[in-house]
């Protein structure tokens, strides 16, 4: 009775006993794994340099114009600050989203039906809404300042953006937690119960610690996805790396700068996110859980 909502094991959809388990990222991209080594990184940097320096040499003929490389280097400190801002936004959203998500996930396996169902509804709603729409929602509907005890506290756009991005993070984390909690063998609950643990104690002392390993790879992957979503904040007027890039491009007003500049920014994100995805795969292989 106590365990009734836990009896339904999460079924691995699509799996058939005659087939091998499908391992998406687990053994995925063995090629890309091999790509992420010193050799390929060097090649990547060289290729990038060629893209940047190539046009630069081509322009030596017109000495009055600065080379593409010079321009990129000049803008690098500004862009780096912008990128740092993206990282800050991603870290904060992840933090807030994870805290809310773990809570929501636990509610999703609550024994009380209405709680379980509303938690499910909230999770599905935010999981299936476009990130950009959620950002608009927050930026336009959260007031720009709050009054706390008569003191006006400003609520800048970027904080609203953090909240907007934390909503989908919450929803995904909630789903991960639900899956992980349900994947813990029922025996764990039963043995804890027979030792006299309350449900709450069982959850916090026995079940949740075991979910960490199971959730970690998906959670890290989510972080990479979130980081790649941070440029969206430029659309709603936050001065992140994307907004700064576009400002730089219009300040320079040179058509030949467009491709190198965008590639430059893309490679920043690549160099930040690729190691995270690679690590995710390594962890997934290591912790691969048989559901």
């Amino acid at each position: 009775m106590t365990m009734y909502c836990l009896h339904q094991k999460p079924k691995v959809r699509g799996h058939m006993p005659v087939m091998l388990p499908m391992r998406l990222r687990a053994d995925g991209l063995p090629l890309a794994d091999r790509l992420f080594n010193l050799w390929t990184l060097t090649a990547l940097v060289l290729a990038l340099a060629a893209v940047l320096i190539g046009p630069a040499f081509a322009q030596l003929a017109t000495p009055d114009e600065r080379t593409i490389l010079t321009i990129l280097l000049e803008w690098t400190p500004t862009l780096a600050k912008g990128f740092g801002f993206n990282v800050l936004i991603s870290v904060l959203s992840m933090l807030i989203g994870t805290i809310m998500g773990v809570f929501l996930g636990v509610l999703q396996v609550s024994q009380i039906r209405p709680i379980r169902q509303s938690a499910w509804l909230v999770t599905q709603f935010f999981r299936n809404s476009p990130w950009l729409v959620l950002l608009f929602y927050c930026i336009l509907l959260i007031p720009f300042q709050f009054e706390v005890f008569g003191v006006k506290v400003p609520f800048p756009g970027w904080i609203k953006a953090v909240i907007g991005l934390s909503l989908p993070v919450m929803a995904y984390t909630s789903e991960f937690m639900r899956g992980a909690i349900l994947s813990i063998p029922t025996g764990q609950w039963e043995s804890a119960e027979s030792l006299g643990f309350s449900r709450r104690m069982t959850l916090t002392n026995i079940i949740l610690p075991q979910t960490v390993k199971r959730v970690l790879p998906s959670w890290m992957n989510l972080y990479a996805v979130l980081t790649m979503a941070t440029p969206l904040v430029s659309i709603i007027g936050v001065d992140d790396v994307m907004a700064l890039t576009r400002a730089a491009l219009s300040a320079e007003g040179r058509a030949d700068l467009l491709i190198p500049m965008y590639l430059y920014i893309l490679s920043w994100f690549f160099l930040y996110c690729y190691p995270i995805s690679s690590l995710t795969r390594v962890l997934e292989r290591k912790y691969s859980v048989k559901l």
Binding site: L29, L31, A32, L35, P231, L266, F270
Partner: peptide, 27 residues
């Protein structure tokens, strides 16, 4: 194909879109 996958999975979709529309599209 491996490079294609790695690149498109590890860069922001918005920046990819801008790259296509503003950079490649201009050329």
């Amino acid at each position: 194909v491996g490079l294609f996958v790695a690149f498109f999975r590890n860069t922001p979709p918005l920046v990819q879109l801008y790259f296509f529309y503003f950079a490649i599209g201009t050329v």
